[in-house]
Design a protein around this nucleic acid. Structure first.
Lengths: 321, 321
DNA sequence: CGCACGCGATATCTTCAGAGTATGGAGTCG
DNA sequence: CGACTCCATACTCTGAAGATATCGCGTGCG
């Protein structure tokens, strides 16, 4: 049984006439008769009643035609779905991200992704930077947004591009002496009770801060550790101390807190977008297109990385287009 | 796109190896390569990654294969369903019947039908004999069980076989003088208040009774008219009068009624099974097979009728078996 | 480091199924 | 009763699928 037989049977059922059905198929009448006869011989049942008033499906024909229609629909859908999958319009993208990324780059990127590729299932999982790096290497994620480039085993197989810079800012409750001041000096922080991200959550930030404070890191050793930005601002609002975090923390502003720049301006490890270099998934490619379209400066960085990948992957099939 | 392409792609996905997939398909490797290449060219996307460690579907291939599997399932199902439909194992049978048929022939016939052809939808509608005849002619029913052969326009297109004989019996409440008597004479009934089927429900019976009672039909003119057998027995139990009905009414026995044979034994119009002579539906044929298997005496009557039909319908395709 | 092997792609030939043309036969209608 | 319509049959032909032989390439083992 070939799909041609299904098409021919459907055309015959539609036109109820061998000659016209054959014409609609672009063939002459005898081959159509032969093919229909072949199907009937294969199934062992007559599918059409040839009457002087037209050709009508038998009970067997009705049952056959119903399935034939569905089969042909599946076949065309196979081609369409394959094409869409190749363009990354269907499928799944598993993304790990740190909570602070939800404040700045992710809303725009994810919104655009949803709009341009509505049929891609987005699996979003908030996780710490070390967790996302491990999950990416293990193949449990397709893309990760972390702070600082991934560390650990297998990261050489990852491509990483910076997607957001931050400098250190302080946050205090509105009752704190710092409230109302545009900036404070780093030295002033050493005397304060600090609130910072937990090292196991953001080791890159923790190490960076320790470097900034130098040998006199007692302030850090007695700091209150927080899981995420919202805990830092919340604790600052409770006057537990002075929160320290990335500048995008300002986007999580509240009425009861005040942000101060820290002088000198101290750059934190960048937000990084990572994915497996060997991952040629079209969904990932489509996602990277969205990222590139959304942030121009990231785009140029990505282009450099992707140029190499695309050149390599297009070599085996240069005649594809 | 041909179903062959789907089969080849599925085999390749299964074996992850061109050579072995080709062998499993009974062809050599080069044609398989060519066919896979043809599909990929038609869709415009690579469906398989040829790696030194095996052949694996791309994202497009995964989407394609999923649909391909379904399409092939539908195709085989088309053949199977057509075959089943031709044998009358699927489809629908619309039957009209009079209530009294539910007492005797229908339980056995319908039970066997359900058992042997569980996937045929049975549409059962109780209706009077004239109604079922009209519905049969109009194509709203496939088969009818009525009392007496159908009358009216279009009945010449129907085939009718008797499927049950009845004689007239009387039914009375247990308090009635007739109670306990095995039989009573027809003349004795003329003096009783009678309960009979309404003429519009069963005109054949009504006409027959009028013939039996002859010119002195005043008893019938003043009779209580009932819609069905259960109303007759129910009214008899209430001592409203003497019920008259077909002998299969005995099967609707109750503690509070008594049945008497009527002497002389008066045969009522037979229960008749009717269907359109032009109806070559396999479901109808399968149903008639069940009827034949269920009642031997009906079978022989049916055989005579069906022999002619089958000879005619098999002429155009004598080589079918 | 090189050779051999495995595997997919390519080239060329062959075959057969499907398509075309011509015609036959059955049924219908004027 | 003849002409017409329509499907089936007979026969030829073409093209696509398949077979055989071979190439190119990458891998892995010696």
């Amino acid at each position: 049984m070939e799909s041609r037989h299904l098409r021919y049977a459907l055309a015959l059922a539609e036109h109820q006439h061998f000659g016209r059905a054959a014409a609609s198929l672009g063939i002459s009448q005898p081959p159509l008769s032969a093919q229909i006869a072949a199907v009937e011989r294969e199934i062992g049942e007559r599918l059409f009643d040839r009457t002087p008033r037209g050709v009508f499906p038998t009970a067997a024909g009705v049952a056959f035609l119903a399935r034939a229609r569905r089969a042909l629909c599946e076949m065309t859908a196979a081609a369409v779905e394959a094409s869409r999958a190749a363009r990354g319009e269907t499928g799944r993208l598993r993304m790990g991200f740190i909570g602070s990324a939800l404040l700045d780059p992710l809303p725009g990127v994810l919104g655009r992704f949803r709009r341009t590729l509505p049929d891609v299932r987005l699996d979003l999982r908030e996780m710490s930077s070390p967790e996302s790096a491990a999950a990416l290497v293990a193949g449990e994620l397709d893309v990760a947004v972390s702070r600082g480039a991934p560390r650990g085993a297998g990261v050489e197989g990852l491509v990483t591009v910076p997607i957001g810079a931050d400098h250190l800012v302080a946050v205090v409750g509105v009752g704190h002496p710092f409230a109302g001041r545009a900036e404070i000096r780093l030295e002033q922080l050493a005397a304060e009770r600090l609130i910072v991200a937990a090292p196991e959550q953001e080791p890159a930030v923790a190490a960076h801060l320790r470097g900034l404070f130098g040998v006199d890191a007692t302030a850090l050793d007695t700091a209150t550790l927080s899981r995420d930005i919202h805990t830092i601002t919340g604790l600052a609002a409770c006057a537990v101390g002075v929160g320290l975090g990335p500048s995008r923390m300002r986007l999580a502003s509240r009425k009861d807190i005040w942000f101060c720049d820290v002088a000198p301006r101290l750059r934190l490890p960048d937000l990084q977008l990572s994915f497996r270099a060997a991952d040629d998934s079209p969904v990932l490619a489509a996602f990277l297109d969205v990222v590139r379209a959304n942030c121009a400066e990231v785009g140029s960085r990505l282009d450099g990385v992707l140029a190499g990948r695309r050149a390599r992957s297009s070599e085996p099939a240069p005649d594809r287009g």
